[in-house]
């Protein structure tokens, strides 16, 4: 499990080459900045189609949208073949490349326990093409393919529980992180660097354009999501050992997360209550798992 660090321990050196072409207040650009800061120089970065975030001082390899897991596999095996296992193959993908079109290849790479690190900047929709729904879009969120109308209340289905899905592959390391908690995020990347096998870190990355809030609120909203229990911060090792990294005595109400985002503006009190109930119930399971130190998969 990761070891806590303080803000003073965050490396000063930037791996990003800025300014990049991300939107103002882009959560994913910050996710990239923080993750690669922690990774340092000895990595090869892999990308599949996604929003531009932060360009990094690393070699960068791309492939077809659906090929992320296989590309990392190829690089990792290739590095072994040429005797350069010191170099880490890192994937930096969006939620499309992780939850949806990229899932098959990533699931297979997880099942083979490839020696790779996957980092997902999760902004909960296909933002690069203008905010279409993804498997990561939460229930009731409107996207350009889930407009609200007489027959629609936004997305009908809950967000895919991708960290637990990967944990169910019994891989060495699965973690969630948030751009609002940089120390936790960097600690997790630090830890992931020290182990081998398949590792995945999913980073909550608010998108001002798609979630529809003013860009200055990126961190505020990310923090509210974590504090409300909508985006819990945790780690799972070998599909078994579990640790909740952020445990407030009391969760903040989900309204503090939902209200500032216009993608949830249409929600009724009953719908908000449903989200609250669902969040609280899931949170209780997480607290139980944390007390036991394990998940029952």
């Amino acid at each position: 499990m990761s070891e806590r660090i303080t803000r003073a321990q965050i490396p000063m050196e930037e791996m990003g080459i800025t300014p990049g072409s991300a939107c103002q207040g882009c959560g994913a650009a910050l996710a990239a900045r923080l993750a690669f800061k922690a990774l340092g120089p000895n990595v090869i970065r892999h990308g599949v189609p996604c929003c531009p975030d932060t360009v990094t001082k690393t070699p960068q390899i791309g492939t077809v949208f659906e090929g992320g897991g296989a590309l990392l596999t190829g690089t990792s095996r290739g590095l072994k073949a040429i005797g350069r296992e010191d170099v880490l193959a890192v994937g930096f993908f969006g939620d499309g490349g992780t939850y949806d079109i990229g899932f098959q290849g990533l699931s297979a790479a997880a099942e083979r326990n490839e020696n790779i690190l996957v980092i997902t900047k999760d902004n909960e929709a296909y933002m690069n093409t203008g905010n279409q729904r993804s498997g990561a879009t939460p229930k009731y969120a409107t996207t350009s393919t889930n407009p609200v109308g007489p027959k629609s209340r936004g997305k009908e289905q809950p967000k895919k529980n991708i960290p637990f899905i990967f944990a169910a592959h019994y891989v060495p390391y699965v973690a969630t992180a948030s751009v609002a908690f940089p120390e936790d995020l960097i600690a997790k990347v630090n830890y992931a660097k020290t182990i081998t096998g398949f590792r995945i870190i999913i980073i909550q990355s608010p998108c001002p354009v798609g979630w529809r809030f003013e860009p200055e609120k990126t961190i505020e909203i990310a923090r509210a999501g974590v504090q409300a229990g909508i985006w819990p911060l945790f780690e799972i090792q070998n599909g078994h050992d579990f640790k909740l990294n952020y445990k407030p005595k009391e969760l903040k109400p989900v309204t503090e997360y939902l209200k500032p985002q216009a993608r949830f503006r249409h929600m009724t009190e009953a719908e908000i209550a449903e989200v609250q109930e669902d969040t609280t119930s899931k949170w209780q399971s997480l607290i139980q798992s944390d007390e036991m130190g394990k998940v029952l998969i």
């Binding site: 803000r7 990003g16 800025t18 300014p19 991300a22 882009c26 910050l30 900045r33 932060t54 961190i219």
Partner: peptide, 15 residues
């Protein structure tokens, strides 16, 4: 506190 520095997506805030 370095909050501005660590949360800047573009590293415009230098320390």
């Amino acid at each position: 506190c370095k909050a501005c520095w660590i949360f800047c997506p573009e590293t415009a805030i230098q320390w």
